[in-house]
Nucleic acid binder design. Sequence first.
DNA 1: TCAAAAGTGTTTTCTGTACACCCATGC
DNA 2: GCATGGGTGTACAGAAAACACTTTTGA
Lengths: 179, 179
Amino acid sequence: MTESVDDAAIRELKEETGVTDVFLEQLYTFGSLGRDPRERVVSVAYYALTSLQELPLEASTDASDAQWFELAEVPPLGFDHEEILQCAIARLRNKIRYEPIGFELLPARFTLSQLQRLYEQILERELDKRNFRKKLLKMDLLVDTGEKETEVAHRAAKLYKFDTQKYASLKQAGFTFEL
Amino acid sequence: MTESVDDAAIRELKEETGVTDVFLEQLYTFGSLGRDPRERVVSVAYYALTSLQELPLEASTDASDAQWFELAEVPPLGFDHEEILQCAIARLRNKIRYEPIGFELLPARFTLSQLQRLYEQILERELDKRNFRKKLLKMDLLVDTGEKETEVAHRAAKLYKFDTQKYASLKQAGFTFEL
DNA sequence: TCAAAAGTGTTTTCTGTACACCCATGC
DNA sequence: GCATGGGTGTACAGAAAACACTTTTGA
């Protein structure tokens, strides 16, 4: 009674996974009859995006019931939770095409190849390396941090970060991020 | 307890406005504290699209509290209902660009000019007549009904209808409607 | 010196945009 | 015959797509 639905989502995410300060957005409200055979339940589902590399330690190591799975390896889920998951994936696939949410799934500094692999996995198709770089760099929303990868057994790639401020002001002015 | 949230939306819409059998979609769930100062309320909002021309008679004439307004003439709304309305408009503006929901706001048979005016009003910018027609007809989703407008004081325009079947199968095959 | 991924330009094709006039109809 | 909106094609520019080799680095 004293907590907004958004705040409840933030709290639950933290309690179950230890994850805080990430992209979190309301997904959909599931309200069909019989989704839980025990009683009538309406669920306001949320989804969060974060980078595995930036998970808080406790999230990956503590002994809670929550675990991380590769999408292809998610075990059978209870109730209508498979439907909810598919709904979230559909949202991500749509949204990533016209909003820069891909960056939420990467560390703050990332290489262009990481970014490209991310898009390829989510969109489930291959992208041309040169065209991909051309397009993204032309938007002028990626900042070269001057740093490079370390501990790789090949030529080290430049690390970029996403210019959130600049995106916000461009968006204000009617610009649409589009891949 | 015995009605799904979707069904409740369908029922409410009918009770308040007499409108049935229209596009109806869940919009967003509003769950902040204090949205209703009297008590804690979580609202699952829905929005519907229909053509004024196809409204059932009782909807426009009966003496219920519900009324139709031009968007620019909506009076001050209670609680956070202004926010909800803006959310619906934002959804419509986004969605109309990549899904064929504009047709939900027109009669089953419509002219290309009607369609263009609709898009211009929702997107709030002018479109070029020739380019608009070229693009839409090229998608091959509009069927010429062979009929024409009547009772107009100028050359009568062809009436088209949207090919829902064809769109469904194209969509299946990966096609995306885009304006 | 080899393996592995980083990085880089040009050409061709397609798509979007700009633009102006004749046509049909009712009054 | 005139006012009103219906209907049509072309030229140009910018974006998307196709495509292959050299560079850097650690092992």
